[in-house]
Write a protein that binds this DNA or RNA. Sequence first.
RNA 1: GCGGAAAUAGCUCAGUCGGUAGAGCAUCAGUUUCCCAAACUGAAGGCCGCGGGUUCGAAUCCCGUUUUCCGCUCCA
Length: 485
Amino acid sequence: MSNATDELFKNVIAHAKEYGFVFPSSEIYDGLSAVYDYGQNGAELKNNIKTYWWKAMVQMNENIVGIDAAIFMHPKVWKASGHVDGFSDPMIDNKDSKKRYRADQLLEDKIAAYDEEGKTDLAEELQIEMDNALKAEDLAVLKELIIKHEIKCPISGTANWTDVRQFNLMFSTQVGAIADEADTIYLRPETAQGIFVNYLNVQKSGRMKIPFGIAQIGKAFRNEVIARQFIIRMREFEQMEMQFFVRPGTQKEWFEQWKQARLKWHLALGTAPAKYRFHEHTKLAHYADAAFDIEYEFPFGFKEVEGIHSRTDFDLSQHQQYSGKKLQYFDPEINQNYVPYVIETSIGLDRMFLLTLINAYVEEDLSTAEKTDSRVVLRLHPVLAPIKAAIFPLTKKDGLPEKAREIMDKLKLDYNVYYEEKDAIGKRYRRQDAIGTPFCITVDHQTLEDNTVTIRHRDTMEQQRVNAADLNRIIGELVSWRNVL
RNA sequence: GCGGAAAUAGCUCAGUCGGUAGAGCAUCAGUUUCCCAAACUGAAGGCCGCGGGUUCGAAUCCCGUUUUCCGCUCCA
């Protein structure tokens, strides 16, 4: 990271806190690692991003419906999805090479080596000891075995190991008053499974015909070993995702279609196309047959914002197997029953929020020959701005405040608006620039005579005089979702 | 998790040799002005991240810890 971009990122974080967008969680108690709260302006911005996504995905597509599944799910869901096994491996680090290995993998390799050397009895003995230790989840014994059999790190060649630790990325808690192992449940590590387990409910009750999609916005939780870079990776985060169910064999074309549709959604907000790129996964997850990320160029490099994955029939097949319920679709067009294939689009809401903030943040030099001047302005798209318009009386006397409030009362039914009479008008404009308010409406002495006001535009700083009676319509057009959908 | 750096007012930061905690901006109240950071007067705001130690005395030195940032690592 260069100094300039480093500086920019720091400034954006400071700005986010100073102007009520993002606060560290429980800050008066020193904060909680990798957990953040959204402030008064952040909550508005985040809600607007959600609305934009929901409108674009659910309302604009008659074959996509939205649900809201619970965070708690039956423990077997995570068995079926592969999260229980895939997320809880015994890991060990070599202190010299700083490489991390699965402890059971190291032992398996050693057993294979013994077999090759013809030491079959040693191999057999180790296999039994390892199996017992894994079954008993005795991590100390696993380490003893690694030491006893002089297993060395293939990179550093040393046996300087840390203790064996269990890494489980899922948070667990208990259901019911009495803590019993059988009652252990997990906080969902992804929202997707809430859609898959409801596939049949939605398909039947909504009389959905393939191809169709189910969308959802919700929180997910991962106990990340390390979580950093502000809100890029949090332990509690929010996803907006849509699972699109298609006929097997058609997944490639739908995958391509959703890739383009999702990029279009991002670009409609006015972000420079050069800031975005696709990144293809070369190493695919166990469930996928194609995977692309949409990446945005953050100050610290290109980072994944959204994933578009072709998940095959993996999830529904797994749930079919574990639940014993048929999760199939009868396709009258080809007169066949099948488990649908799935294209997933999954966007990290918090990352989208940060992207939006960083992309909008501009430090402008307004210096003239006479004086140096500058401002910080959030060039948010008007549809996303936390506050759509601010209303200012030019002075706080001569009946201007009363007139301004009267105008504001007519606008606040439809838009989030803000009133302020303190400080000079220029200062009030700058304050709104800092939180991205696209329009400032100023009531002056002329307003009292002919009912006209000025609208000052955030980006150009230019003003236009309009009739106050037209404000609702004018603001409405400027902040309409039609401008992006 | 390993290594490095940092933590002082809402924000950005200063704080000398260890000797009673400071600035700019922001905030609040008032006066005045009125279309792009005006001025003036006043006020509020601090467990110097937290805990321990050394010392007559610690923001300052030492140890631990928490949080954040950077690099590595991890991210089905």
